[in-house]
Simulated scan of single mutants.
Amino acid sequence: MSITAKRSEESRSASGHEARWEQHNLERQTRILEAAVAMLEESPAGAEIPVQQIATRAGLAKSVVYRQFDGREDLDCRVRAYLVDEFSRTLDAQLDISTGSVEEILVRTIRAVADWMTDHPRLNEFARTGPIAVGADIDAVSGLKVRMSDRARELISSIATLIDVDDSAFDAVPFAVVTMVEGTLTQWVGDPEPTRDRSEIVADLARLAWFVLDGAARSAGVTVDPTAELSAVIAQLSGQAACRA
């Protein structure tokens, strides 16, 4: 074997070893994060869970936790990031515009938020206690609101492009709707004697969100039936735009 070939083989071996070690660390981090989330769910409001208990739940030594994370603050941030990522995937699935009417998409997305806040109060509380990265200046929930606003803005922009409509009328809509939904549900969840049940508050918020979207759409010269399949509406409006071109 030539020196060049030998070095190439050694390089591949080292690269493979690094990849396996990185995967090993990733698996350990996931175990730790999952353990922390499980213990949060079981803990009383405001309780801080000792790192040792998290390590034990994950089946690891406490020293392993500190090798995977740069201290308690980093661990807490990563737990919040894990929660936000998991919840974002849930919301992305509900925002799938390929199936359902605008009304159905709004209801199922807002219901997912209401379900998470109601069924996981301890996780919701913890997500508000700090950022998803050490040194970040907004808490995890605020960051999630920005992320979902950006996602909604991307969807609206893509639809506007397909139907050849200026999307500037919708600039403020995503954040306004996301903020309204989150703020209203936070107040509702915190009310010890709410006057509306979960289905009613979801329906109310979906209706209000539609009013905002409909107003922006009409100002852009577009009228949409909120009960019609959105993919069919987009196809129809896109065809009309092609005829105008």
Rank of each mutant, 00 (worst) to 15 (best):
A169K: 12
S142N: 03
W116A: 07
L208C: 12
A38C: 01
R67G: 07
G130M: 07
W188S: 10
R20A: 15
T227Y: 10
A228N: 00
D214H: 11
E125C: 05
L185E: 06
I110S: 05
L106N: 12
R20I: 06
A112C: 04
V222R: 06
R122H: 05
P44C: 01
R153G: 08
R122K: 13
E48M: 05
D225N: 14
A242V: 08
T99Q: 14
G59Y: 13
D119G: 03
D139L: 06
I201L: 13
R196L: 15
E103A: 13
G59D: 01
A38Y: 00
A45P: 02
R128V: 00
D74E: 11
Q29L: 03
L162W: 02
E86F: 02
Q29N: 07
V146F: 02
S13M: 10
D139T: 03
A133P: 02
I132K: 06
R57V: 01
T186M: 09
R198A: 13
E200C: 00
L205S: 11
G143T: 06
D150C: 01
R111V: 02
A55M: 04
E103G: 05
A140I: 07
A228Y: 05
S231L: 11
D150G: 10
D74V: 02
D204Y: 09
R122Y: 03
F211K: 14
E73A: 14
Q187W: 09
P121T: 01
G239R: 09
I132F: 00
E18G: 00
V224L: 14
L123R: 05
L60Q: 12
S199G: 13
R12H: 05
V113C: 10
S168L: 08
V102P: 10
S63I: 03
T56I: 05
G71I: 13
S219Y: 04
V222Y: 08
F170V: 07
V173D: 05
R80N: 08
D139A: 04
R72K: 15
S98K: 13
V134G: 11
C77P: 04
A114F: 04
R57H: 04
R31F: 04
E48R: 14
N25H: 07
T129G: 04
D137Q: 15
R80I: 01
D164W: 03
D92A: 12
K6V: 04
I49P: 03
E104A: 10
T99P: 00
V224Q: 06
P50V: 03
N25W: 02
A112L: 02
Q94V: 01
S8A: 15
D150Y: 04
A241K: 03
V107W: 12
E27H: 08
F126V: 08
A140T: 10
